[in-house]
Amino acid sequence: MKPIAVGGLGLWSPGFADVTAWREGRPDPSVEKPPCKLVNPRLRRGSSRFANMLGEVVQQAAEAASLDVRSVPTVYGSSLGEIETMVTLLRMLFEEEGKLSPNRFKNSVHNAASGLVSIGTENTSFSTAIAGGDRSFEASLLEAWALLDAQGGAVILAVADDRAPEPLDALDDHEALAVAFALLADPPAGAPTLAGWRLEEAAPPHQARVPDALRASCAGPGLELLDAILARRAGPVGISPARGPQVVVDVLTPVVAPGPAGV
């Protein structure tokens, strides 16, 4: 398992349009919908906020790492996936005698964002969609890491969950959150590096100041890693949810000035 580098970051959450806004820590109430220019406008009419969140952070991370969105492989992760689309279809199923919107149905799959972004960017390279429940971040990072280990090059990892709509809203208390990491097999000089994937009984104490509602998202464990990268804080970082065995990785940070992408 070779070390990999982080070449760029992406983040979107209501109030936070990108990594810069997150770092400044001042939420903007006008930020409610991700712009997501990677999904073309015709297809965006049928895409969910969840899919647009993923597309938005993929674009941010790719730009930050100067990667071409038309060719970079992508790994998407989520626990709830297209849950808003599912609830819309359930209403149609039971209130409209099974007459479902074909557009909604084809965008209800867990890999809808993967498909929409690949179509919008004409990207025919590798893409996949992972689900790991509250361990979706560590599962998706492992899938991306293994892909880099096998093929080299670069991979964009994007993990997100939107809020669950009624009547499933009572099941989760998280806020919408998407994070992305541009991961590189060959660390360029000065780039933060990830190494030492391991399973431990307890994780290192949290360092990032993260609201509980974001930490509860399946993408929440990614914020701990994102914060360590942004702060160029070397050391072990836990990337698992609170319960159960803890996956820990080491962040290695060469001493250089931060680049324009904050990495």
């Binding site: 398992m1 890999n111 996949t128 969609a129 492992l142 899938e143 293994a146 280990d149 096998a150």
Partner: peptide, 25 residues
Amino acid sequence: PRYVVSTACSSSGKVAASAQRLVAM
């Protein structure tokens, strides 16, 4: 590790690729 690949109708073909990579790594 335990996870799901959910890419609609290719899901449980793609798991074979994930498995190969995890073992190779």
